[in-house]
Write a protein that binds this DNA or RNA. Sequence first.
DNA 1: TTGATTATGATAATGAATCGCAAAATTATA
DNA 2: TATAATTTTGCGATTCATTATCATAATCAA
Lengths: 149, 149
Amino acid sequence: MKKEEALLKDHISKHNLKVTKERSAVLRVFLDSDRHITAEELYRKMRDTGSSIGLATIYRTLNLFCESGLAEQRQFGDGQARYELVYNVKHHDHLICQACNRIIEFQNEEIEALQEKVAKKNNFKIFSHKLELYGICSACSAEKNALDQ
Amino acid sequence: MKKEEALLKDHISKHNLKVTKERSAVLRVFLDSDRHITAEELYRKMRDTGSSIGLATIYRTLNLFCESGLAEQRQFGDGQARYELVYNVKHHDHLICQACNRIIEFQNEEIEALQEKVAKKNNFKIFSHKLELYGICSACSAEKNALDQ
DNA sequence: TTGATTATGATAATGAATCGCAAAATTATA
DNA sequence: TATAATTTTGCGATTCATTATCATAATCAA
Ligand SMILES: [Mn+2]
Ligand SMILES: [Mn+2]
Ligand SMILES: [Zn+2]
Ligand SMILES: [Zn+2]
């Protein structure tokens, strides 16, 4: 059993929930998907492979993943929540290309430390944070330059 | 005439739009409000002072403010957009208290510089960014400590 | 196997934000 | 100032992502 499956089952048993084939199937497809997937994308991906799961169950299951610590929800400003695996994944922040919607992950310990410094100066306890850099990725820049020639 | 009013009128004339009493009234109340106000809050504030303006016009006018460079929209994760004056206001980021919803502004040039460094390393051109630190403010921490005694 | 409990799919409901439209207001021009 | 082209308004309808409802189905401890 995968460690992600074990984590989810542990959460399920600790909360008197039940292991269902839907939950197992959503987990399988979620783990096999690109990071930062939307509920709708996951729904279509499962439908396309013959599953008859309902969209409400996708939402319920993704919420369950978040509650169990397996996933986290992100809002990148396009009106749809995106979900990504965070269990056994190093914390990171995001660069978001507004031309091709590509999402680039990065880690920067210096920024993390400075955030804590800002919090301390304001007697503030940080529980979570969001750092998103919006702009144009290198591929889209190159494409634009080629067109401009 | 206030500099904010001048900026808006300049934008209006440059785009063949019209100065209306509604737009003037929304601007007056917006400038007189707390920073980070929602459309609904602004709507109620105007209604409470006898205005019969419609909510759609509030939304339209706030969008106009953003297009003119007077204001910017923020999303602090509670599902409602908030708007704040940015014209002649120094760029800053936000600490958001999840207990009392207080919003604390801060500036940190070191973080801003590191963001650019991250972008450069990824050949990414930043157009805008979002840095939000979520947690508990000092007042709410103090309150909680007092209760725990 | 049973039966208490939880989960599911279909559909309705929600809530923030936008749209369409007829009527009203603005403003350039005469 | 009167006219008329253009823009704006308020209202209500609409959109879209997400959640709630509820009857039926599935899970699982005993
Ligand atoms: Mn990520
Ligand atoms: Mn601010
Ligand atoms: Zn791109
Ligand atoms: Zn607080």
